[in-house]
């Protein structure tokens, strides 16, 4: 038997923080690719600490629903899952290249394949593009459009900026959008000045965050000038300094995220290739019906 565990931050305060996690887990459950699919959280239940014991499978794929490698993926999750032989070097990562490592957990008799975070997987670039399609309602969006990928700066976590730049570079190379720019909340190039960085009249702005919350729903919209007060909401697109800004909200809410979770498990050896295909197709339908 094989199990998938999606580990995410969760929240003691925000009831919707875990909603995307459950959504992606449900999508994967529908594929029946795993005998068991579980969500586990740092701030909700089941906690990281107690999730492995709820599984009957011997092979467990753990995929962190986090944007970058850092404190959570390197310290908190391995410690709380009791992956005793874990060492950050085990991933042999340059900050965005972690794939997986196979370990034992001290409290259960199981093999744990501990995967890199979803945010740094190549498939994440496709989710950012899909997010741009969803927010514009145009499956071919690109011509005449600029794309901004937004993240925290290096102050909080050096690798988080690396992940943002990594995907911006990859999407630029696709040649689909007129211009692609990585922007940050607390360093240059800053998201506040978004319109300075684009020639294109239309710009899609996609924050590289796993869930909507304070940053994506309050900070960034106000900083970009979409609205003076986030409580009043904003238009999509919103006209700012002669540009139309299509603000997408957290990329992590995009249904295609389930594909990145699966791809992480696939790379780590899970038998889920068919499910990957199903999810790619199915989430496109879901996005279209929602729009």
């Amino acid at each position: 038997m094989q199990a998938l565990v999606i580990v995410a931050h969760g929240s003691h305060l925000n009831p919707e923080s875990s909603t995307p996690t459950y959504g992606h887990a449900d999508t994967i459950r529908e594929t029946a690719a795993f005998d068991e699919v579980r969500e586990a959280f740092w701030k909700e239940e089941p906690h990281f600490r107690e999730v492995l014991r709820t599984l009957e499978s011997e092979e467990v794929y753990v995929v962190p629903l986090f944007i970058s490698e850092g404190y959570f993926t390197e310290d908190v999750i391995p410690r709380e899952l009791r992956l005793d032989d874990w060492d950050p070097d085990a991933w042999e990562s340059d900050g965005t290249s972690a794939t997986h490592v196979t370990l034992d957990a001290a409290d259960v008799d199981k093999t744990v394949h501990y995967c890199g975070p979803v945010g740094t997987h190549d498939a994440m670039s496709d989710v950012i593009v899909r997010r741009a399609e969803s927010v514009t309602g145009d499956p071919d969006v690109g011509d005449g459009f600029g794309l901004a990928v937004v993240g925290h700066g290096t102050k909080r976590n050096e690798n988080s900026a690396k992940a943002v730049e990594y995907h911006a570079d990859r999407i630029r190379e696709m040649g689909r959008f007129e211009e692609v720019q990585a922007l940050f909340m607390d360093e240059d190039p800053e998201v506040d000045d978004v319109t300075d960085f684009f020639e294109s009249e239309d710009v899609v702005v996609v924050p590289l965050f796993v869930a909507d919350g304070y940053h994506t729903q309050e900070d960034i919209p106000e900083d970009m000038g979409l609205t003076d007060d986030y409580r009043d909401g904003w238009e999509t697109p919103a006209k700012v300094d002669g540009h139309y800004l299509w603000y997408a909200g957290a990329v992590g809410t995009e249904p295609l995220m389930a594909d990145v979770v699966l791809e992480r498990a696939l790379d780590a050896g899970a038998d889920v290739a068919d499910a990957v295909e199903y999810v790619k197709e199915h989430t496109r339908d879901a996005a279209v019906t929602e729009a």
Binding site: E45, P46, H47, E50, V51, R53, T54, D107
Partner: peptide, 21 residues
């Protein structure tokens, strides 16, 4: 039951088996 009270069955069972950690 596990959705409403996560991990309670596993820990209850460990306790019954005498190996609650």
């Amino acid at each position: 039951v596990e959705t409403i009270y996560p991990a309670t069955i596993a820990n209850w069972h460990r306790e019954r088996e005498g190996n609650l950690d």
